[in-house]
Amino acid sequence: MKGPQVLVTGATGFVGEAVVFRLLLDKKFTPVAAVRASTRLSGLCRVVPFDLDLPIGKSMLEGVAVVIHCAARVHVMNETAADSLAAFRKANVEGTVRLARRAAESGVKRFIFISSIKVNGESTVRDMPFKATDTPAPVDPYGVSKREAEAALMQISLETGMEVVVIRPPLVYGPGVKANFLSMMRWLDRGVPLPLGAINNQRSLVALGNLTDLVVTCIDNPAAVGQVFLVSDGEDLSTTQLLHRMAFALGKVARLLPVPSGLLRVTASMVGKSGVAERLCGSLQVDIQPTRELLGWRPPISTEKALRQAAAHYRDKETR
């Protein structure tokens, strides 16, 4: 493997690890995995220690041409930090800036930042998708920290000449997905009745394989420089449609009760779960047409195939 070295931070995470494996498969670039803990990537590529909260050694970036920054303090449902915004800023802004400045000093040519659609906001009006050119409107501390990191990176690019590319994914799913998506698969697999049979929203999702394909495209595409890209599978689904398709991928029939979304929102509000109801009933769409046009990129994996991949991985794990 002799291609340019590409450092991937957060290489033990859901997205970061997938990016490293994609680079190993393509053999066009030489991945370097920057991790905080032990990883199964040891022996497959160079592995270097990395922590968002710690100073960065010079050797980590030696010979690196491109950085793909996936590591982050991620959005969590039950925040425990006394000052969550400060905690997110420490990791996602200060840690990112420290890494970017060291990268620029080390001669890194391009810095690809995995941000979040939360920079745009939390929801859209149906059929009025977010655009990369929209004025950012983050709501929660995670989204705010990602927006501030984006702005800092663009300033560093102006000061140093290091190229910066920003990618804002919505919900990412695929083999090994966790959190709410995994919970939904378990509910469907067990035949749990869900009051989600009459949800008429529209949400953009992105398969892990589609996101990693876009990330790799941005490594050396000259049109990517200085751009912010939104990404999805190119097909928006309602929560009801997603559950039916997910159940089909699992070989199950979704048991969905046709409860009106308005009633779900009211009930959720009464028990302090308005945020959950919004994610299930609200719309969040993204416009990827500029991504397609600027990069000549198309999502290579269909929603059906991606759901089958996620279901197969789930089956393999659950039956072990």
Rank of each mutant, 00 (worst) to 15 (best):
A86P: 05
R89T: 15
V286H: 04
G43L: 09
T267E: 14
A87C: 13
R245H: 12
R73I: 05
R147W: 13
A198M: 13
D236V: 09
A37M: 08
A11G: 09
R110G: 07
D140S: 11
A81I: 01
L295Q: 01
L153W: 02
A87R: 14
A72G: 06
S59D: 15
E163T: 04
A249Y: 02
K118L: 06
V20I: 01
G121M: 08
A71T: 02
L294N: 12
F130P: 13
E304W: 03
S269M: 15
K146E: 04
D213C: 09
T80P: 00
P299G: 12
D26G: 02
A65H: 12
Q289W: 10
H69A: 00
C45V: 13
E105S: 12
G272I: 15
I199T: 08
T267F: 10
K58C: 13
F181I: 08
L7A: 10
V35P: 05
L284Q: 04
G10Y: 03
G209Y: 08
V35S: 00
D134E: 01
V271L: 06
V67T: 14
P170D: 04
A137K: 14
A18P: 00
M270A: 15
R89D: 14
M184N: 04
G43M: 07
T319W: 03
Q289T: 14
V8M: 08
L208H: 07
N221L: 06
F50E: 08
L284W: 02
V6R: 05
D316F: 07
A254P: 10
F29R: 13
S283W: 10
R110W: 02
G209Q: 07
R308T: 06
S238N: 02
L188R: 04
L280D: 06
S38L: 00
L242G: 02
K317F: 07
V48T: 07
A91M: 10
S59F: 09
A310R: 11
F29N: 09
L295R: 01
A179T: 12
V119Y: 09
V253I: 14
L85A: 08
A103S: 15
D236T: 12
M1I: 11
L182P: 01
G234V: 02
V6E: 02
S59K: 14
V66C: 05
R190P: 05
Y314C: 01
N200Q: 15
F181C: 03
E17D: 15
M185Y: 04
L263N: 01
M162Y: 04
G143T: 10
K118T: 06
F29Y: 15
V228F: 01
G174D: 00
M1F: 09
V74D: 09
H313I: 02
E148G: 02
